[in-house]
Design a protein around this nucleic acid. Structure first.
Lengths: 258, 258
DNA sequence: CGGATAGTTGACAGGAGTCAAGGTATGTGG
DNA sequence: CCACATACCTTGACTCCTGTCAACTATCCG
């Protein structure tokens, strides 16, 4: 059983504020244990080494940490969705990654440097925070943890590469479709009920204008590939999540003004 | 002193073919030691543990490894420039990263998986190959090596993120300017003599058409921001490598037909 | 119910992709 | 050292797409 991560609703700037309830961090029985950093640890080790791990729930649009903050620890997502925003000279920022259940945020602080990105929740999200010293102690007790750590790094790099190839070029409708597929994978949403981020965020992800996003989303809806089933929740046709992987988006007459 | 990495000019498909001469891998006195994986090792350890490290020189356009190849080892670049190409459904591939002096390629094989990318040289390049077991032994002898490994991973992620933000969106001339800056950083070329990759590669990096690249490069030349000083070698004006970081490319009358 | 925020749509201009043709360099063999 | 073949690069014409600006509408939240 572990402490909660600061329950104060204090100021807006600190990491981990806006926690709306305390979670228990019983790492030993956590359903994520196989995915998280501790996949390689035995029960006995777990009990002693995870005492400093905190957990909590943040509501939508909460700040987890800001780029440049001194590193306090790494975070594991129990459930939810997080965006990593990289500052750009034009002040608008750019979303460089989305992270969902089982993913690890802020690994860069393990190299002794501050956070690279600003991390914000895209929906209600439950997180665990693991202080840097705890990670250090953990892998000095169990060298096999290094493999887990490297896998987490590898995961980041693979997402980054896929982000680039799937979302970085090509026709906008295609990239939108690829984004929906990625969202299904990352968030764990069912294709029957994908939760789309606000249009402005989608624009920041794809590197296009918000209006362009809006237009093409409308087109996908008209084509019947996407159907609204709730506030920001969409059901997507199988063609959207399957066939789109390799090139051609199902051809639909581009209904201009109807 | 170490073995050379297979000097055979054998077939075109294997990794490490086309080595044109044997390099010595005297890691202990390598000028890259501070940058490479062994920054943390003492002299004594170095001597015993680096015996299996091979080195060699590859000429331009040589294959280092292919995506999906079973991982044989990681590579460190002594001097040169390497592109990582990710396969795409449209068969054209996309360049997702450039790596220069001191960088490490193929870290992903340390997680037990095959290579993620196809790695090709963009110019004559000198590499060291470190077999996976050697890395494993190295960090079981010296846990501090883990920090070096994580720094290398971090480096990959930071380049990936910067690639996305600097080259992934915005006006093409701006992205070209950003690419030139990145090239200067990565390759170590002087701004007085930057070696530009073929236009097709630049197109693959920026995710635009080759014609677009050609047109905008021509414009930069006309504007005096880029001047050809040799085959594929360009001298770039300070405005190109400095001011372009934060937004506006120096305004030059767009000389249409002159 | 009402204000604020987020999303939608139209008109227009400039930019980028595509296809196709012509030009230049590179480096190989004589 | 020169000539030639082959890549590589450049340019033009045209269409379609995307960004921008601006007005309008829907949705969310108190």
């Amino acid at each position: 059983m572990a402490k909660a991560v600061k329950e104060t609703e204090s100021n807006h700037t600190g990491p981990c504020d806006k926690f709306i309830r305390t979670g228990d961090s019983d790492c030993q029985h956590c359903s994520l244990r196989q995915f998280a950093l501790f996949a390689e640890l035995g029960d006995a080790e777990m009990r002693h080494l995870t005492a400093d791990i905190c957990s909590g729930v943040l509501r939508r649009d909460s700040l987890i940490y800001s780029a440049g903050d001194p590193g306090a620890g790494v975070f594991t997502i129990r459930v939810g969705l997080v965006k990593l925003v990289m500052e750009t000279p034009d002040r608008r920022g750019r979303i460089v990654r989305l992270l969902g259940r089982g993913a690890t945020l802020g690994l860069e602080v393990l190299t002794g440097r501050p956070y690279d990105h600003t991390a914000l929740t895209l929906r209600t999200t439950s997180l665990c925070r693991i202080p840097i010293p705890t990670v250090d102690v953990l892998h000095s007790h169990n060298p096999r943890l290094v493999l887990g750590l490297m896998s987490k790094w590898h995961e980041q790099v693979r997402w980054a590469d896929r982000w680039l190839t799937d979302l970085g070029s090509g026709a906008v409708p295609q990239r939108l479709a690829n984004l929906v597929r990625l969202l299904v994978e990352i968030s764990g949403d069912s294709p029957e009920a994908v939760h789309l981020p606000p249009a402005a965020d989608i624009a920041s992800i794809l590197g296009v204008s918000q209006e362009s996003v809006s237009r093409h989303l409308a087109e996908l809806k008209r084509a019947g590939l996407l159907r609204r089933v709730g506030p920001r929740i969409y059901r997507c046709a199988p063609e959207l999540t399957d066939a789109t992987a390799d090139g051609e988006l199902p051809r639909v007459a581009p209904i201009r003004s109807c």
